[in-house]
């Protein structure tokens, strides 16, 4: 399925109190959609760490759902975070993995084993409570609400097509200032 269409489904399904963290290609596409104060565009990032930021937010805000839109290259850099998430019992955390098999922002070089990694099995093995996988947009659109409201931690593996030749995300502004605005939004 086209990765932006898959992301649009989450954009339409997220609740007004939900935190949504996006990184890499997901961040680029998310920034083309209407923004909310509880959006955390994780650009600049540390490699692969969007899931870890999500875990911290989920623990600090247990009454909110935290949705992390991550890429497969990023996920491979921080697979251990799935174990940390499950071990911490972050039931309000959703990891949506956009798997396009490439490092898209650097020019679509393949990840180490594209098409060979069973991310659903990894998430189950790490201890995630709910695990889903979707390859077809219609099926994903039909089920997005259901998957986001299942007992967590939740892992959603979305097989998407890379957007060839599209530049990577650009920071939407100084991160320190965005951090302050985000914290204020959580308090209000």
């Amino acid at each position: 399925m086209p990765e932006k269409d898959a992301l649009v489904a989450i954009h339409g399904a997220r609740g007004p109190r939900d935190v949504v963290i996006t990184t890499m290609c997901a961040a680029r596409d998310w920034m083309t959609l209407p923004q909310q104060p509880l959006d955390l565009v994780f650009v600049p990032s540390a490699m692969g760490h969007a899931t870890s930021v999500g875990l911290g937010l989920a623990l600090a805000q247990p009454d909110r759902r935290v949705i992390v839109c991550n890429g497969d290259g990023s996920m491979l850099m921080n697979l251990g975070s799935l174990v940390s998430i499950a071990g911490a019992g972050a039931r309000n955390l959703v990891v949506a993995l956009f798997d396009n098999g490439v490092y898209e922002v650097t020019g679509s070089q393949p990840t180490p084993a594209p098409g060979c990694v069973d991310f659903a099995a990894i998430a189950r093995g790490a201890g995630f409570e709910s695990v889903f996988e979707f390859s077809h947009l219609e099926s994903w659109q039909t089920n997005v609400h259901r998957t986001l409201t299942c007992p967590g931690p939740t892992f959603i593996w979305l097989r998407v097509e890379p957007a060839v030749g599209v530049p990577g995300p650009r920071s939407p502004g100084p991160a320190g200032e965005r951090a302050r605005r985000f914290r204020d939004a959580l308090r209000s």
Binding site: V53, G56, L57, A60, G80, V83
Partner: peptide, 20 residues
């Protein structure tokens, strides 16, 4: 909060701090 690797620890702490 136990994590698997130390780089994770800083980013989990970042999320916690952002979350208040």
């Amino acid at each position: 909060v136990r994590v698997c690797r130390e780089g994770e620890a800083w980013e989990v702490a970042a999320g916690l701090h952002l979350g208040g």
